[in-house]
């Protein structure tokens, strides 16, 4: 699968852009938190597209955001 680029994203409609990002993010997130992958991906898709692209290129950034999202999600579910 070829890397997702900002120009590829820009060529797609806004809703499609999130879909493209989600399809790339999901497998990476699934490898970290298989049970929560769908919800974590949904949370991360609320982030700006440019930052999501950066996360796809930077595993460390993605990992940090995923851990952040898991903490938020667990706090939310504990309520």
């Amino acid at each position: 699968q070829e890397p997702l680029t900002s120009s590829m994203l820009a060529a797609a409609p806004p809703q499609e852009q999130k879909q493209l990002l989600g399809e790339r993010l999901y497998p990476l997130i699934h490898s970290m938190h298989s049970a929560l992958a769908g919800k974590i991906t949904g949370m991360l898709l609320e982030i700006d597209n440019s930052e999501l692209l950066h996360m796809l290129e930077s595993p460390e950034s993605l990992h940090a955001k995923v851990e952040e999202a898991v903490a938020v999600l667990q706090a939310h579910q504990a309520k």
């Binding site: 809703q15 999130k18 989600g22 399809e23 769908g38 919800k39 991906t41 898709l45 609320e46 939310h76």
Partner: peptide, 26 residues
């Protein structure tokens, strides 16, 4: 008393068109 956040966050499923926050409104 506040039930508005029960469905948060929207869940992403591969291969399923993403509706994101739009699907909160019926």
């Amino acid at each position: 008393s506040n039930g508005s956040s029960i469905s948060w966050p929207p869940e992403f499923h591969p291969g399923v068109p993403w509706k994101g926050l739009q699907n909160i409104d019926p």
